[in-house]
């Protein structure tokens, strides 16, 4: 497809460009010059990490839905293979961008390969998402070249397995923390896997033509949201009982509202309620990631108080903007360059 400069002179690209410049400035400053985030020695994973988890799980959800569609030979999803691959890759790159600003020294990432630690959930998370990205890229290249054959099904199955494992592993990064009872346990892996399906279905509903998809993803979104309501409700009940020392409880009643609304009313306006689901997923991740760190451990209680409070600052909000802007830029660019549907990309 022939791309011209005027293809980028649109309001959508202007908004994306603004997000890239504002968020990118903060990201570059944070990585190379100084520290802007509202962190301290006892509260180290804040909004930028929440953004990573949110976007990575949304990408995982898109991959899961697409892989399931390809394995079951669903004609609707098969027809959407290329756009969905672009969405999954874009969201994952947005996630990696947010993570890069959160890491102190990006170049040291090479040690993940040279000095691996298989007992570390973060090592597994990094490895699984690297494999996930490679699988998505291979599938996109094959799709662009029109190569289909014996590898299609094994690749789809591999993507499904890796995506499920990756979503579980993000939960395990928190669930294996023995010293923080708000994190500890397998429950968060259930939350992250369910949230991945919900946010992936929401991203597809928001970004793709519903006529083409025949409301398929809206149905997945409704079912996923209903299940997430059940998961959060179970957590609320568990946290209403006696709690282990050092537990604050991260589940809140407000977390149910977006998913109840999606489960009940998505037919009214699928795109609006897909947006509600994404906001709900972001709030859910924010809730458990931040709450799990608020109880200060050891001497940190002297310096920061027994229980901390946290409010994201402007630079952290701009990393949220950056992650979404990178994802949006890649998705839009992919749709403009690799598909012939600029109106859908708009």
């Amino acid at each position: 497809m022939h791309i011209q400069a005027r293809d980028f002179m649109t309001p959508a690209w202007a908004v994306i460009g603004l997000g890239l410049v504002l968020g990118g400035s903060v990201g570059i400053y944070e990585m190379f010059f100084g520290h802007l985030f509202a962190t301290n020695s006892a509260l180290v994973w804040t909004l930028p990490l929440v953004v990573y988890v949110f976007l990575a799980l949304a990408s995982t959800g898109v991959s899961l839905i697409l892989a399931f569609g390809l394995i079951t030979k669903n004609p609707v999803l098969e027809a959407e293979t290329r756009p969905l691959l672009i969405i999954a890759i874009g969201l994952l790159m947005g996630a990696f961008t947010a993570l890069a600003t959160e890491l102190g020294s990006l170049l040291n990432m090479i040690w993940i390969i040279l000095s691996p630690n298989p007992s570390s959930p973060i090592w597994w998370m990094g490895t699984l998402y690297s494999i996930e990205l490679a699988l998505l890229a291979i599938k996109l290249v094959m799709n662009l070249q029109g190569r289909h054959g014996v590898l299609d099904r094994p690749l789809a199955i591999a993507t499904l397995v890796v995506a499920i494992a990756a979503a579980f592993t993000i939960g395990a990064v928190f669930g294996m923390v023995v010293g923080r009872p708000d994190y500890y346990g397998t429950f968060l892996s259930l939350v992250t896997l369910t949230a991945a399906v919900v946010s992936g279905a929401a991203a597809i509903t928001l970004l793709r033509d519903q006529d083409a998809l025949g409301m398929l993803t809206a149905k997945v979104l409704r079912a996923g949201a209903a299940f997430l309501v059940l998961v959060v409700a179970i957590r609320l009940v568990l946290e209403a009982g006696p709690l282990a020392e050092g537990t604050l409880g991260w589940a809140r009643l407000w977390m149910l509202i977006p998913f109840v609304a999606v489960a009940l009313f998505i037919d009214w306006s699928p795109r609006v309620f897909a947006g509600v689901a994404l906001l709900g997923a972001l709030g859910l991740h924010y809730g458990f990631i931040i709450t799990g760190q608020l109880v200060s451990l050891g001497p940190a209680a002297n310096w920061f108080g027994a229980v901390q409070t946290y409010q994201p600052n402007l630079p952290e909000f701009l990393i949220l903007v950056l992650g979404i802007a990178v994802a949006a830029a890649l998705i839009k660019l992919g749709q403009q360059v690799l598909t012939s549907e600029p109106e859908a990309a708009e």
Binding site: P116, S120, I122, W123
Partner: peptide, 10 residues
Amino acid sequence: PCVKACPTQA
């Protein structure tokens, strides 16, 4: 737990 969690054996 820190040794188990470190992804790079740092």
